[in-house]
Design a binder for these strands. Structure first.
Lengths: 229, 229
DNA sequence: CACAAATCGAGAGCAGTGCTCTTGTTTTGC
DNA sequence: GCAAAACAAGAGCACTGCTCTCGATTTGTG
């Protein structure tokens, strides 16, 4: 075995801490994540971990970015898997299903990303690019739908204040998007994550008996409301 | 001052613990809520608190029920405040605004109710009646809309599995509700709480510049989608 | 090559947490 | 009046995040 350089060793240890941190996260959730427990498993004393992550929050930040990117990969892969690129309804449903599948497979990670923020933790700007991949997937489909001129069904007139409120999104887009459509897609965004949070956090318990069927019904309805179907 | 009986004293202490617990909850959030800190402020030693609440989770349960009921009161008051009882769109918007106003005024309590569940905590059935008041407000409006025969716009055919999945809700209703309408209202439910969670947990930051305007636009659109407007 | 500087792991320690158990006191109900 | 129940206090356990110090090892440089 070749003697490892200090830089190699550092990278290796950092990765080891993060991967066992990730496993602990998946098992006990963000709130119960313990630096000391991670250190024990990696074979380090607790204080040594601080050489690699200045604080528990910094480790959490790394895990948040990792999770966002994992979810982003899942979403983009699912979208790319739809043969007919013009089937925007199919792509929307594929994206929705990808998010839900990932969330159900990684409930604690989903809670870390979209649940209550952990106390005292302020998400640094470094998480934004990875987080934006998810909403970006929706916005890309919205742009495509706008470009081909899909009608926006039942669209309500957009208030002047709302037009202004959408300025942040307008700026982030390369292709302009009419406000009526933007509102519809933002609603779809809220609906999908609302459904997931209500489902995963137990609020549909005993009310809805088949989450799969209901989610499919909801995303199907959303494709209609978005003018895709 | 009259000497208090043991029962009086017990009720008083229990209430004192819960109210300072509630204040701490509002200040530091559910995860950082500390029994010891509460005990210090009430003027008790930490172990004495266990005479009143067997565990931290039991205190949390009491606070959850308190919060649900407070939100339920706000919702029902808001609905009752709408003069024209036939203005279901107005009542829906009033309910939505009441939920959002309460959530923004009590973000930590909202996180406790609708955010990630606290680790190791399993909500006992005692929380269900209070929690059901919120969704019940929506379902009441749905029933009224169904009774007067509002059309459900753009309704998609409801799959057989979904019809079965809605059995849990159907049972809880006194007045029957067509499945198409039920789906629409469940979507509205997800959309409202999705919006709130995304807003309060920071996911709209820098994207949507005026949360008030956007929420108004969303609820307005929902009234149209529900066939109320 | 030598040596100072930077890096690292280990250990002790601090302040905090939820929770349990024991001990002595006070109030209750028979 | 007295045994029983309820109660507050305190000590203690195992755990947490985090800081500091102390040697050992690896680095880059004169």
């Amino acid at each position: 075995m070749p003697p490892k350089s200090r830089a190699e060793n550092r990278a290796e240890q950092t990765r080891a801490i993060q991967v066992t941190g990730r496993r602990h996260l998946a098992e006990v959730g963000p709130a119960a994540l313990s630096l000391r427990a991670i250190a024990r498993e990696v074979g380090l004393v607790s204080s040594a971990v601080y050489r690699y992550f200045p604080s528990r929050d910094d480790l959490l930040t790394a895990l948040i970015i990792e999770a966002y990117d994992e979810l982003g990969d899942a979403v983009e892969t699912a979208d790319a898997g739809v043969r007919d690129r013009d089937d925007l309804a199919g792509r929307f449903i594929a994206v929705g299903n990808a998010i839900r599948d990932w969330a159900r497979a990684n409930p604690h990670e989903y809670a870390l990303l979209y649940g209550s923020p952990v106390p005292g933790y302020a998400a640094p700007d470094t998480t934004i690019p990875s987080a934006a991949r998810i909403s970006g997937a929706f916005l890309t489909l919205a742009q495509l739908s706008g470009q081909r001129g899909d009608a926006v069904p039942q669209a309500r007139p957009v208030s002047a204040q709302e037009r202004q409120a959408l300025g942040g999104i307008r700026q982030a887009l390369d292709v302009p998007l009419d406000d009526e459509r933007t509102v519809r897609w933002l609603i779809a965004w809220s609906t999908v994550f609302g459904h997931l949070s209500l489902e995963l956090f137990g609020h549909m318990y005993r009310g809805i008996l088949d989450y799969d069927a209901h989610f499919a019904q909801v995303t199907g309805q959303l494709t209609a409301d978005l003018g895709l179907a």
